[in-house]
Simulated assay, not measured.
Amino acid sequence: MREQYRIELRRLSRDLTEIARLVHRAILDARTALESADVHLAQQVISEDARIDRLQNTLDEQAVRLLALQAPVATDLRAVVASLRMSASLERMGDLARHIAQLTRLRYPEHVLPDCVQELFARMADAAVEVAEETVMLLDSRDLVHADRVDAVNTRMNELHASVFRAIAAPSWTATPATTTDVTLASRYLERFTDHGVSVADKTRYLVTGEWTAHGGPETGRS
């Protein structure tokens, strides 16, 4: 009985890492679709999000079952509770990648972003992809070096996000209201993507150390 319990705990960890890998693929493809106005790739990101949702639901059901039937304590309890909370953040990251793909589909065959901000958004997309990569490695290894890297990239993303708003507010900005809205939304989606990565990093720190320290992810009051 206890061996089955250990197997189910390990499965939670594996499934969490698998969701992170799917999120990494989603943001990679969403970035490519955004930059190239590839509506077929955008549609693939949108369709594949359902797979992330299904895996999250399966993981959450398994975690609740463990809580109800096994009554885990100490480190095991932290693992189950942290898995529940991290799966929600990862699912939201998948949603945000889907939102970016939906913008691409909405504006096809035109590009979402005007030329004047494409370089800025390329850096933001790079940051989002880096957070996704570090999140996969963090969940796979539980090495908190990766959590620190997520925090550092998120700081860079926040600076880039602020730069977008400065660009929009500049007197030289002449884009249409629709384009301005698209730019604002795209920036917000990328910024929130890395914030949820910070949330996963925080939960992993809690899982590894048993100490809770929030670093400004979505649970500080924004969703």
Rank of each mutant, 00 (worst) to 15 (best):
E3A: 11
Y5L: 07
R6K: 12
E8A: 11
R10N: 15
L12N: 03
S13W: 00
L16K: 03
I19R: 03
A20G: 06
A26D: 00
A26C: 01
D29S: 14
A30W: 02
T32I: 07
A37I: 01
H40F: 10
Q44I: 01
Q44N: 08
S47L: 14
S47A: 15
I52K: 04
D53T: 00
D53M: 01
D53W: 00
T58M: 10
E61N: 10
L67C: 09
P72D: 11
T75K: 14
D76M: 06
R78N: 09
V80H: 07
V80C: 09
R85L: 11
M86K: 11
L90G: 05
R92Q: 09
G94C: 00
R98A: 12
I100Y: 01
Q102W: 01
L103R: 07
R107F: 04
P109G: 02
P109F: 03
L120F: 11
A122W: 09
D126C: 05
V129M: 10
D140V: 03
R142K: 14
V145G: 15
R149I: 12
D151M: 11
D151K: 09
R156I: 09
R156C: 12
M157V: 00
N158F: 07
E159I: 05
S163W: 02
F165H: 12
I168F: 06
A170G: 10
A170Y: 02
A175C: 09
T176Q: 04
T176W: 02
P177F: 01
P177L: 01
P177R: 00
D182W: 03
D182K: 02
V183I: 09
A186T: 10
F193G: 08
F193R: 06
H196V: 04
G197K: 04
S199C: 10
D202S: 06
R205Q: 13
Y206K: 01
L207N: 05
T209S: 14
G210M: 08
W212P: 07
H215F: 07
G221K: 05
S223A: 14
